[in-house]
Design a protein around this nucleic acid. Structure first.
Lengths: 217, 217
DNA sequence: GTCTATACAGAGATAGAC
DNA sequence: GTCTATCTCTGTATAGAC
């Protein structure tokens, strides 16, 4: 393994385990078992290292979920996949890396770029799955998959951040989300006429809200 | 205004605007216009100051929303309130303070305590509103309001964090959430029999999932 | 309670030998 | 590419005068 890769691994692990304040050039180098000056030789700055590390983590994570995400056909399956991602998070810490970089982004443009990259990457992936999953549901045509993918991705960040502080609470939260998913899925049982009526009502509400936004507040 | 309060204000503002790395004892004292040593005199440590500042911010924010939260009667109104909170966030930065403390919690027990306090406080408040709002909906009895309140609170954290990096995307996300809220509200139009059928289906799905969890994975 | 001064550790970053 | 050595800055924290 090259020094470059050792540093990237150490940065990713440090970011997930200790947070931003635990990934100084010295700390990362120590974790990687290499000299501190190499951080600057290979990446120019600590921010540069973190940027590269997070991008790589996201790319790897997205690639490793791509196949399974492509197989997802229902909302329930998507929620199950989310559960698995949450379970895997305890080992990989992918999402926590993103959360850390996002908080650091406020004063560091490099980290801000990395944060945007990570969110865009995940959101794009979730979006195509959502688009497919939502098609046969009443939400199709009513909710923008792109926006919903953003909400899902951001929400996940919040959940993992919360999990790092209070794991039990997050388990309760996930159970609640499962229940909502079950309800939405159960809407399939409705006769088409009823679905049409509900959709019509919802659509009018959304249109009214859009109009209000259009007028400005 | 006492020095203590000046420091608390400065810490809260710094946390929201610059993030954790921007709230050193020196930076906060400069913002407050007082001497750096006073941070340690009044709060013992920087963590102590941040802890106190976040607790105060949360207490104030929760108090200022309590009346309006008590008036919320429908899911739509709750979503509107969330919108207002998001708009106010640009000035107050309450939620961002929580996000920052949560990321810092990984290596600082004092901050971890503050993070738990903040989440518990908000979640408890959201929970009572949710309990009331969900009662007349099909979700009543199906989803645990406590867990859902956690999910909502955590999700909001993620959204505000995302907003700090990419505001436009978050607006899309909020629109998508509004659409979902509209659909759930529109379920009121269904005849009671149809609601019963949907609930029955959903309930069975939830029961199966709970059983699987009970068996362990 | 507030200020000055200071100790000291750790940070980012660079120079230069190898 | 890697290491040692070092510069400089910023951070936390304390002592002691006022």
């Amino acid at each position: 393994m090259t020094t470059r890769d050792k540093l990237l691994d150490a940065a990713a692990a440090g970011l997930a385990e200790d947070g931003l304040s635990g990934v100084s050039a010295r700390a990362v180098a120590a974790r990687a078992g290499v000299n501190q000056a190499l951080v600057f030789y290979h990446f120019g700055s600590v921010s540069g290292l973190l940027d590269a590390a997070v991008r790589r983590s996201v790319d790897l994570a997205v690639a490793s979920y791509r196949d399974r995400l492509a197989d997802v056909a229902t909302l329930g399956e998507l929620l199950t996949l989310g559960r698995d991602l949450h379970a895997a998070e305890k080992r990989s810490g992918n999402v926590l890396q993103m959360a850390q970089v996002m908080t650091g982004a406020m004063r560091d443009d490099t980290l801000a770029e990395a944060a945007r990259y990570a969110m865009d990457r995940w959101s794009a992936e979730v979006e195509v799955a959502l688009r497919r999953v939502l098609r046969p549901t009443p939400l199709h045509g009513l909710v923008d998959p792109r926006g919903l993918a953003r909400a899902v991705s951001a929400g996940f960040i919040g959940l993992e951040l919360h999990d790092a502080v209070d794991p039990d609470s997050v388990e309760e939260a996930l159970v609640a989300l499962d229940a909502i998913g079950a309800l939405v899925s159960a809407l399939d049982a409705l006769p088409p006429l009823a679905v049409r009526a509900v959709r019509g009502r919802a659509r009018r509400t959304v249109a009214r809200a859009a109009e209000r936004r259009g007028l400005g507040s």
